[in-house]
Nucleic acid binder design. Sequence first.
DNA 1: TTCCTGACGCTTG
DNA 2: CCAAGCGCCAGGA
Length: 111
Amino acid sequence: MKKDESFFEMVYEVVKLIPPGRVTSYGAIAKYLGAKGSARMVGWAMNASHVMDHVPAHRVVNRNGMLTGKAHFSPPERMQSLLEAEGILVENDQIIHFQQHLWDPEKELAL
DNA sequence: TTCCTGACGCTTG
DNA sequence: CCAAGCGCCAGGA
């Protein structure tokens, strides 16, 4: 992997690799990047994602499958709409069958 | 250069 | 079981 890029750029690549209808957690990405304890960095990177590149940040949620970052979308409901458009049911800002849609980079990419 | 903040996660009370 | 606090790393002021 390219490590010359900033931390958030690496996060973008992983998020972009998330297939439609799948979701992942900040911690999973952080762990995959080696910053297992720094899930916040992933979320922080996502915040800049909407400014840097078109990253499917709506496919990234916290470890509970809760749309904690929805507030950063425009409008916030956009996040849930995008997820439901991919076949992911969301209720009360929480993904239904989160584990079922979970896409773990360490498992899927099996690096 | 130093201090503060942040779309999280885990441990402890 | 529910609530609160600390720890993580990087960027901006």
